[in-house]
């Protein structure tokens, strides 16, 4: 059973959230999208000190210097786990507490094009607003939910471009036979249409501090967040070795090939392997696919077997593909901490 935590700031603002019995208060606040001041998060620096006004708790291992003197109820929130509901008094004002609600903004369709069988590239332009201006700020790998006004339909899609000051979002969307959003895009969507954008959201993204090679596995439109990460690497001129295993079922489903070639020119270390499962088109047996025939999971497995050291793995695609990659990676000894994935919502 979780405990209720109430934190009151110096200027009287109150923040409430739930905390699991083994969770520290700082982590519980973060889980509730409340960022309390902290730095080292392990009982040493003192930045998260506060005072418990009411309730039972356990204060874990910490440095005595980090606690203010003379307050027997002083705690460090990073190592305080509740034993009951807690009322906590914080020594800072409410402006120090950061809340990050998911942004809700309006955007218009700036471009809509077919880039492969049943695959659309959708470009949106944010309308300027008071809270966010005209910027599109997000981490490479994040997604937004698009909502059709008046229909109440919300669908998540990864962003394929990078954070920018022009207010542009680029999405790669695979049309489904019976989807409400798919039928909108297929039949009704026009440049200039307004959509509601919820986001950015999600934690899929680069392990930015890592110096290891970065290997990306993308199935179909799972390329979108991967493309965002590769573009960001190019923008920031990051030097990590990079390989992309991009898989589709049929050659006619490939897309963004020119863009990937352009990226290879900017990121000299990038190696792209296009993987086509069914190597020839139905009724077109003469022009067989000359590249890798098989799934990106097969291609990855072969590459991992030949690799000197474990890369970081970034995977996006259908759930079955993500699970298969996870199994292949585990079998090859890639540590779980080097594995990041996003599954298509089905």
């Amino acid at each position: 059973m979780s405990h209720r935590i109430e934190i009151t700031t110096r200027d009287g603002q109150a923040f409430e959230f739930a905390c699991e019995p083994e969770q520290d208060v700082l982590a519980a606040a973060a889980a509730a999208q409340i960022t309390l001041p902290s730095q080292c998060r392990r009982g040493s620096c003192g930045a998260c000190h506060a005072s418990v006004a009411e309730g039972g708790y356990v204060l874990g291992a910490h440095s005595a210097d980090a606690l203010p003197q003379g307050d027997p109820q002083a705690v460090l929130l990073c190592c305080t786990t509740p034993r009951s509901d807690l009322r906590i008094v914080a020594p800072y004002d409410g402006t120090k507490v950061l809340l990050q609600p998911v942004a809700v903004r309006r955007a218009r369709i700036a471009a809509l094009e077919t880039i492969a069988d049943d695959t659309r590239r959708l470009e949106l332009q944010f309308e300027p607003d008071d809270a966010y201006g005209s910027a599109a700020e997000f981490e490479a790998g994040q997604f937004v939910e698009l909502e059709l006004p008046e229909r109440g339909v919300r669908r998540p899609f990864s962003l394929a471009n990078t954070s920018n000051w022009d207010g542009r979002l680029e999405l790669l969307i695979r049309l489904r036979a019976d989807g409400v959003f798919s039928s909108y895009l297929r039949e009704h969507a026009r440049v200039g249409d307004a959509l509601t954008v919820h986001g950015p959201q999600g934690g899929f993204g680069l392990f930015t501090e890592s110096l290891r090679p970065r290997w990306f596995v993308a199935g179909g439109t799972g390329l979108a967040p991967v493309l965002s990460m590769l573009r960001r690497m190019a923008e920031y001129q990051e030097m990590n070795d990079a390989r992309l295993f991009f898989g589709v079922n049929r050659e006619s489903e490939l897309f963004m090939v020119d863009e990937l070639e352009r990226l290879q020119a900017e990121l000299a270390q990038l190696h792209v392997e296009f993987c086509v499962r069914d190597g020839s088109e139905p009724g077109d047996a003469g022009t067989a696919w000359r590249g890798f025939r098989g799934t990106p999971v097969d291609a990855l497995q072969a590459a991992l077997a030949a690799a000197d050291a474990s890369p970081d793995l970034y995977v996006c695609g259908p759930p079955g593909m993500v699970s298969a990659v996870q199994a292949v990676a585990a079998a090859a000894g890639v540590p779980a901490a080097q594995f990041a994935s996003e599954r298509f919502a089905v």
Partner: peptide
Amino acid sequence: WPGVRHLEHGAFAPLVQAALALPGFR
């Protein structure tokens, strides 16, 4: 900082672009 944009030699154009795109003080 890894993943944070680094500007060199006073080439501050992206900073100005960001300032113009962001809301500023109302």
